[in-house]
Simulated assay, not measured.
Amino acid sequence: MPGTSPDRWSRVWRERLPDDPLDVVHAEPAAAVAAVLAGDVDAAVLRLPPAPADGAALTPPPGLPTTTPTTRDGWAVVPLWTETTVVVVPADHVLTVLDEVDVADLAGETLLVPADDVLGWTPAGVDVVEVPDAATGADLVASGAGLLVVPHAIARLHDRRGTTVRPVPDAPGSRLALVWRTDAEHPHAQELVGIVRGRTAGSSRGDATVATGAGRGTGRDGRSGRDGRGGDAPPPRRTGRPTPRTPGRGDGRPRGGGGRRTR
């Protein structure tokens, strides 16, 4: 699905199982569960809805499958990592003076909410404008029409010139998991689990079918810490509240906060 990069997994698979090719099929997140149920694929990497803090039933956002796989319903669900949520802002926006953004900092802003939203979360105090998809939202951010709140990998996928991102640590993260139907488990399913979790060929496979509580701090290749590809990293130290940009600097960058510019 968009925002994942299975090339490394495919390379390791070819090394370990050269006689059994791994076919990678790209699909929209909302179609992943249906593809497994239809038998079009043996397993899928998909996003799960953010876990509700009060234990209420999960309500999938519009960009995710209407049915959330659970072990109670005959699915194997292997948590992979929880991806940090970021806000995409114009490069000269006042929020760029911060290394990270609190949810409260978003109040009063115009928030672009795509029809393929995978978070299902809107901060309080924002003006919501619905847009067709995340790609359109990124284009509108570049034009100064508003801000976009998405998982980090989605922001990278739709990177635009003139925009930058800042993590929002207190926003819900996007949980990713590997799933398949237990009544149609492929003989190499456990081998795939080991590969996506970064285990070596000789390591113990352990119990792959676990609940859907993915934890923060796990990188895309199964290792903890900063992996540079969408896994959570230790949040940078906050440098202060946003302050207006001082004109006349000449390089287009705001004075004051010293946050690193990224795209």
Rank of each mutant, 00 (worst) to 15 (best):
V103W: 03
A214V: 05
D227G: 01
L157A: 13
L176M: 11
P132E: 02
R238Q: 05
L176N: 05
R238P: 01
D99A: 11
S204A: 14
R160V: 00
R226Y: 11
G228C: 08
V196T: 07
V118T: 15
A107N: 08
H158W: 12
R220K: 03
E109F: 00
R160N: 01
L111K: 07
S203F: 09
L192M: 14
L111E: 01
P151H: 04
L119V: 06
T239Y: 02
D159L: 09
D99S: 15
T122P: 11
R238N: 12
R238D: 01
H152Y: 09
G162H: 11
R216A: 01
T246S: 06
L178I: 03
D139F: 06
T164G: 04
H158C: 00
G144E: 07
G225F: 11
G217I: 13
E100F: 10
G194V: 00
L148D: 02
V129D: 10
D105W: 07
R237F: 00
L147N: 00
D227E: 02
H152A: 08
G230H: 07
L192N: 03
G228H: 15
I154P: 00
V118I: 11
P151V: 03
E185N: 04
D139L: 15
A184C: 06
V150S: 05
T136W: 08
D117A: 03
E109L: 14
D170A: 08
L111T: 00
D170Y: 11
V179Q: 13
E100N: 12
R229M: 02
V141I: 07
I154L: 14
D207R: 13
L111V: 04
A104W: 11
G108L: 09
P114F: 09
A184G: 10
L176R: 13
L112M: 04
T164C: 09
G240V: 09
P236N: 04
L111Y: 08
S174L: 09
P132Y: 09
A214T: 03
L106H: 05
Q190K: 04
P244Q: 05
G146T: 06
T239W: 03
A211R: 12
D102F: 12
R156Y: 05
R226K: 11
A184D: 13
G213A: 14
E185D: 02
G162P: 14
I195Y: 07
P234Y: 06
P242E: 06
T163S: 12
P167V: 00
V113P: 07
D102A: 15
G120A: 10
W121Y: 15
G219Y: 15
R220S: 01
V196E: 06
T212M: 02
P114W: 12
A177I: 03
V196M: 14
G240E: 12
G231S: 06
G162M: 15
A233D: 14
L157D: 08
P114L: 01
V193E: 04
A201E: 15
G137P: 09
Q190W: 07
V128T: 15
R223I: 01
V150M: 12
A155C: 04
T122S: 15
W121T: 00
L148G: 03
R245S: 02
G230M: 08
V179K: 05
T209A: 12
P169K: 02
D170R: 09
D232K: 13
D99Q: 12
R156G: 00
G194E: 05
A145T: 10
V126P: 10
R197Q: 07
R175H: 10
D183F: 04
